[in-house]
């Protein structure tokens, strides 16, 4: 009995120690800048910028591999905040801000497969198996993840049309 317990316990302890030391010695320094940029991002890990997560994107942006305009759901507001943080000029032309959008489910095509609400990073879709799904406009960030997984292509990102309550004056041309 002891013959089997002792070597295994010893092996476990040794490996644990090794891992502990390795995590100290091989610790990857994350710059403060990256952390600060990550705080500005939506944190939905939508992957639209081409990075696997918001953390990775913030890292890449902090070392200058990504321009401040990299975050599509963040839009202009986030781009400006990042440019401010990094102290760089914002190239507004690189910003593909097409105005606010929202996901919309075509009720005729939805089969209730539940795939979209499982991937939604902000829980903005409600539904159940074989039931019609709906989008909560308040929570939707138009990240497009649901659009990608929908088997019937019934989800589309549509631009938000202004109403009397949300309309604002446009910039005068001078």
């Amino acid at each position: 009995m002891l013959v089997s317990i002792l070597p295994l316990a010893g092996l476990g302890g040794l490996l644990g120690l090794l891992l502990g030391v390795a995590s100290r010695v091989l610790h990857v320094e994350r710059s403060n800048v990256a952390v600060e940029i990550e705080e500005l991002l939506p944190g939905t890990q939508c992957g639209q910028c081409g990075n696997p997560s918001c953390g990775a994107a913030a890292e890449a942006c902090a070392v200058g591999e990504l321009p401040p305009t990299f975050c599509p759901p963040g839009g202009r507001a986030v781009a400006e905040a990042i440019a401010n943080k990094l102290g760089v000029a914002l190239d507004a032309s690189a910003l593909c801000d097409e105005g606010p959008k929202l996901a919309e489910i075509n009720e005729d095509l939805c089969i209730g497969c539940t795939r979209c609400y499982k991937v939604c990073p902000t829980d903005a879709i409600a539904g159940a198996a074989k039931q019609l799904h709906v989008v909560f406009a308040d929570a939707c960030t138009a990240c497009g993840k649901c659009e990608d997984v929908c088997p019937t292509e019934c989800i589309q990102l549509v631009p938000v049309t202004p109403t009397l309550q949300t309309w604002a004056w446009s910039e005068p041309t001078l």
Binding site: G74, G75, A77, T122, D123, A124, A139, A168
Partner: peptide, 20 residues
């Protein structure tokens, strides 16, 4: 007003994403 609204939405999104 628009920027304020967007900032509010961003805060909400962060909370929602974290909760999820």
């Amino acid at each position: 007003a628009n920027r304020e609204k967007e900032a509010r939405k961003m805060k909400k999104t962060q909370v929602l994403a974290q909760r999820r």
